[in-house]
Design a binder for these strands. Structure first.
Length: 809
RNA sequence: GCGGACAUGGCGGAAUUGGCAGACGCAUAAGACUAAGGAUCUUAUGAGGCAUUUCUCGUGCAGGUUCAAGUCCUGUUGUCCGCACCA
């Protein structure tokens, strides 16, 4: 079959007939199938695109045939760093390159033969989309969920520019190799932490991979403990967060994060030089260095002392970079006897090690980090760690020196980017009125086209005076726009809401439509988004719900992660390694259906694996084999009034078995086994056709069933075969085959017979034989009794439909 | 360092969730058809035991639970992924 020809033939027909446009009349049967949209890159569609989009499309086609009104939209996450970097290098405007890339990708995606509803397409870099991204920002601002605070950025002193983490690996600028430093800028944050508890609890009800839920759970990182107030001698105070309040009497020092504002306040004159040097040194550390546990702990004494609120003891205050300003209170108490890190720190700086928790086993080696029994802790002596944690915090609470506290690892979401190619932050800074949100009717704040984005120390937009200078919407006086753009994760945090109502210019979406179309019934994308994107989208959904726009709590009811297709050498494909496999050569040689079918068959979908050439040949052979039998059988004139014989019953069994399994496998993304069952069915059809005088309705029905089952996997090919069979409408308008359970029922079933749990022989028994009958049948079996050889049976276990196990002595 | 996942023939991978390990395919071998076969069809194919109506071993390694373990538990090794030293 000429695959190229039939591909374009059917793609044209599908488009003409609008076969895949969502019909709103059937909204009550909707199935929203969403693939993570893609970044419009300059290179062609790669294997990963095919693997994600092609196979999920097969899943969507399966759902369509199951009777759902499928909504499968596609779009582009079109803002972002690469286009801007490309522009800096080549001088080509990000909009030009992005839109041209989108055009190329659209063509290729259409050639894939997926049922994307292109009427619903969105491009996040277009004003009709980012207008609503800005709307979202303002809504969050109105609700107090967007706020500004100082936060460090990676700064290259030579390039005079902010760097993304990926541009500052190993602590140096990727462009010039200069040591990257941290610089504080006032930036916008979304208060995702307000939703920490709900984001955590909501995971339970989701049909998501367990490991993804676990990763989000760890990312949110709830920990219950307490906050304890320490006071310095000079009268300043600060809180520490601890999960081990039971060790409070063992504190021998406290540590502030070097960025903690109090450090500079409380340091003594004689320590000033050392402390400032240390703070500067810390600013140079990139996160990865600071994360390394193998690195020696460093710190600096501030010269100040704090009072332990439990026992009034004076302890030194240190600044050390193993404490993070962003977590908890940015301050911790040091208990060297009962914490690994504190122990090392104390050894290095000669600090006392006070044992306050005894190991019940009597072992006195330190540090002892488990729970135990309190000692040297005043009134709390003799309590267990668990009791003491409560009691200590209760006493502190009564004295207003602390209390119980739940902390989350989750940080607020920093959304400011000092970049050009993104949605402008719709805020005006007025010298009189301060921060003034742009009025809703003035949206979108258009991204100016004529901007110098080569780095020279300022945000690209900051240099664009026509953009920056505005009248304050509040007082009408001269004011400046915010020069930053929004993180692209903001664009992708709500796009699934825009698809169903993408042309709405009154609202980002009509709540009435969206509340019917959402949540997404199946979301498919890479596991790399487990924590960031998926968490942001969940947060935005909940925030919009609380504003009254949405009536559901979670955006994605079910989630599947596809695996990664590796190079033939087993490594991740990369240009530097030279192991990149391009889909194009295979598609040219075999067609897109064969390519798709191989991707289905050759891998465990969620695991992925190395690419293998031989596999695709075998799939091409299989497709030929199907074509041959369909062509052959198509000429048959079936025998009239045929009564199925034993052979026909075997074929009917094979058919029912195939339908049942393929149906289940397709719904589970278990594509490889679905294809395996189809192969078996084809073999059964060949076998039947090979017998004499078998031209009858059973055979023709089997052929049609095969085409229907195959349709989601090889859409063009199946359409062509379906047409050959004399059908005049699309195969995708036919219902999915239903398993004939009666054909599956066998009167007799085979059981394995075990002696001492080892299979010795097989017996056939009636399908509804009870345990006693099974046992009797086994004992009556000649082969079995010979093997048993009169040994004494101690016990007999019957597993219905599977086996019978005799335990003998 | 912490967290998570994974480990099954020569290879990709199955295994109805504790019940006959190796489905399906690749590769390999033999045969059939043929002028020819890199097409097609049939058969065989975990390892071993002088070998086929018999047995032994076998799911990274070492233990354990169970009538029964690839599957559950403990320990261990290796590979991959994520990370914000999380107090």
């Amino acid at each position: 079959m000429d695959m190229k020809k039939i591909e374009s033939k059917w793609q044209r027909k599908w488009e003409e007939e609008k076969l895949y446009s969502f019909n709103k009349k059937n909204i009550d049967k909707k199935f929203y199938c969403l693939e993570m949209f893609s970044y419009p890159s300059a290179s062609k569609l790669h294997l990963g695109h095919w693997y994600n989009y092609g196979l999920t499309d097969s899943f969507a086609r399966y759902q369509k045939m199951k009777g759902y009104e499928v909504f499968e939209p596609m779009g582009f996450d079109a803002f972002g760093l690469p286009a801007e970097n490309y522009a800096i290098k080549t001088g080509i405007h990000p909009e030009t390159s992005t839109l041209s890339n989108i055009e190329t990708m659209e063509k290729q995606l259409k050639a894939m033969g997926a049922m994307f509803d292109w009427d619903a397409e969105i491009k996040t870099c277009m004003p009709d989309y980012y207008k609503w991204t800005q709307w979202l920002f303002l809504k969050l601002y109105d609700r107090g969920l967007a706020y500004r605070k100082a936060a460090p950025v990676n700064w290259c002193p030579k390039c005079q520019t902010v760097l993304a983490n990926e541009q500052a690996t190993e602590g140096v600028c990727e462009r010039c190799g200069t040591q990257v430093i941290k610089k504080d800028l006032t930036q916008w944050f979304f208060k995702i932490t307000d939703y920490a508890e709900e984001l955590l609890n909501g995971l339970d009800g989701l049909d998501w991979p367990e490991k993804t839920k676990l990763m989000q759970k760890n990312w949110i990182g709830k920990s219950t403990g307490g906050e304890i107030l320490f006071r310095t001698e000079s009268g300043e105070s600060f809180r520490v967060f601890t999960t081990r309040a039971d060790t409070l009497f063992g504190v021998s020092y406290v540590v502030l994060a070097p960025e903690h504002p109090l450090v500079k306040k409380i340091m003594t004159k004689d320590r000033e030089k050392d402390v400032l040097a240390y703070i500067e040194e810390t600013a140079k550390q990139n996160e990865i260095d600071r994360l390394s546990t193998t690195r020696e702990k460093t710190g600096v004494f501030t010269g100040a002392y704090a009072i332990n609120p439990a026992n009034g003891k004076k302890v030194p205050v240190y600044a050390a970079d193993y404490v993070l300003y962003s977590y908890g209170t940015g301050a911790v108490m040091g208990v060297p006897a009962h914490d690994e890190r504190d122990f090392l720190f104390a050894q290095k700086y000669g600090l006392p090690v006070n044992v306050v928790v005894k190991n019940p086993s009597g072992d006195e080696s330190l540090p002892y980090c488990e729970d135990g029994v309190l000692t040297d802790s005043g009134e709390f002596d003799g309590m267990t760690s668990a009791e003491a944690r409560k009691a200590v915090l209760a006493r502190l609470a009564s004295e207003e020196k602390g209390g119980e506290k739940t902390n989350y690892r989750l940080r607020d979401w920093l959304v400011s980017r000092q970049r050009y190619w993104g949605a402008p932050i719709p805020v005006v800074h007025c010298p009189k009125c301060g921060i003034v949100p742009v009025p809703y009717q003035d949206l979108p704040v258009l991204l100016p086209k004529d901007v110098e984005f080569r780095p020279d120390g300022e945000s690209p937009l900051a240099k664009c005076s026509s953009f920056m200078n505005v009248k304050c919407p509040c007082c009408g006086g001269d004011a400046k726009r915010d020069p930053d753009t929004l993180d692209t994760f903001v664009c992708s945090s709500w796009y699934y809401l825009r698809y169903p109502d993408n042309k709405n210019d009154e609202m980002p979406f009509d709540p009435e439509i969206v509340n019917k179309m959402l949540p997404v019934d199946r979301y498919v994308g890479g596991p790399e988004h487990a924590c960031m994107h998926l968490l942001y989208a969940r947060f935005i959904t909940k925030a919009l719900r609380d504003m009254g726009y949405l009536k559901f709590d979670e955006p994605f009811r079910a989630l599947t992660h596809q695996g990664i297709i590796l190079g033939p050498d087993g490594y991740r494909m990369s240009k530097t390694r030279g192991n990149v496999v391009s889909p194009d050569t295979y598609i040219d040689a075999y067609g897109s259906d064969v390519f798709r079918l191989y991707l289905m068959f050759g891998f465990d979908y969620t695991a992925g694996g190395p690419w293998d050439d031989n596999g695709i040949k075998s799939i091409a052979k299989f497709v030929d084999r199907v074509e041959r039998i369909v062509t052959k059988v198509n000429g048959y004139i079936p025998e009239k009034e045929y009564v199925p014989d034993k052979d026909a019953k075997d074929l009917l069994f094979a058919q029912a078995y195939c339908v049942k399994n393929v149906d289940r496998n397709m719904s589970d993304f278990s594509f490889n086994t679905a294809v395996a069952r189809l192969m078996e069915f084809v073999t059964a059809i060949y076998k039947y056709d090979g017998l004499p005088n078998k031209i009858n309705a059973v055979l023709l029905k089997a052929i049609d069933t095969l085409i229907l089952l195959l349709a989601p996997c090889t859409p063009h090919f199946a359409e062509e075969l379906w047409e050959m069979r004399g059908n005049d409408q699309s195969v995708f308008l036919s219902p999915y085959p239903v398993c004939d359970e009666a054909a599956l029922a066998k009167d007799e079933i085979e059981l394995a017979v075990q002696i001492n749990s080892k299979v010795k022989c097989k017996i056939n028994v009636s399908k509804d034989a009870d345990d006693e009958a099974v046992k009797a049948a086994a004992l009556a079996d000649e082969t079995f009794s010979k093997i048993l050889g009169g040994k004494q049976i101690v016990k007999c276990i019957v597993v219905k439909g599977r086996l019978v196990n005799f335990i003998v002595r």
